[in-house]
Simulated assay, not measured.
Amino acid sequence: MGTLTEFRNITDTEDFFEFFDLQFDERLINAKRFHIMKKFGELVEKASGHDFGGDEKLLEYYKFALITVYKNFENGYSPSAADVWEMFDKPSACGTCSTSSSCNDVEEVSHGVHACTSHNTITF
């Protein structure tokens, strides 16, 4: 496992799994990428402000969170329609503010599609 700085620089879903040395089904990631990363992002956000006693423990929490979310989807979890529509109600599309509605850098980029302009590249 790498450092917290390395973790914060990850942008691709597969790279999170590789960072934590976790096996994954590429077909599942391709089919549920957005939902997996949304739930993982929510758990990462919940960790902010908590004292885990160091970066290593925080990274262990992140690893456990990713395993938990992935296993839920692997075992057939499917977000409810309400969860899906809630995602569209929150137009933010960046890793920093995707779990919050406080982003001020969201702009409509094309026919109702919104994106956060504070980050140049956005990948899930």
Rank of each mutant, 00 (worst) to 15 (best):
R27M: 08
D25W: 07
F19D: 03
I67A: 08
C97G: 05
S101K: 11
V44L: 03
K63I: 00
N30D: 13
K71V: 08
F73I: 01
D105Q: 09
S78N: 14
S100K: 09
D12K: 14
K57E: 13
S92K: 06
M37C: 09
L59W: 03
A81N: 03
V109T: 06
T13Q: 07
D105T: 11
I29W: 01
V113K: 08
Y77V: 02
H119V: 13
F73C: 03
L43N: 03
T3P: 13
T99H: 09
A47S: 15
I29D: 01
H114C: 10
F17C: 11
F124W: 13
A31Y: 02
A115K: 08
C97F: 12
A65H: 13
G41F: 00
F40R: 03
C116I: 02
I36H: 02
D89C: 13
H50I: 14
T3N: 13
V109R: 04
D89S: 12
N104D: 13
A47N: 04
T3D: 13
F20G: 00
F16D: 07
T121V: 14
S102W: 04
D15M: 06
K90W: 01
E6S: 13
F88L: 14
D21I: 12
F40T: 01
G95T: 00
A47K: 09
K57V: 07
N104S: 14
N72S: 14
N120Y: 11
T96I: 14
T121G: 00
L66Q: 02
A65Q: 10
V113M: 11
E42I: 12
A81G: 05
I29V: 15
V109A: 11
S80V: 05
N104E: 15
F20Y: 04
N30M: 09
E108Y: 08
A81K: 08
E108F: 10
F124I: 03
A82K: 08
E42P: 01
E6P: 05
N72M: 14
A47W: 12
F19N: 07
F20H: 04
T11E: 13
L59Q: 05
T99E: 12
E6K: 07
M37P: 01
T96F: 15
A31M: 11
S101H: 05
Y77N: 07
Y77H: 11
A31F: 01
K63F: 11
Q23P: 09
V106P: 09
T117I: 11
E45Y: 12
D83E: 15
Y62Q: 02
F24W: 10
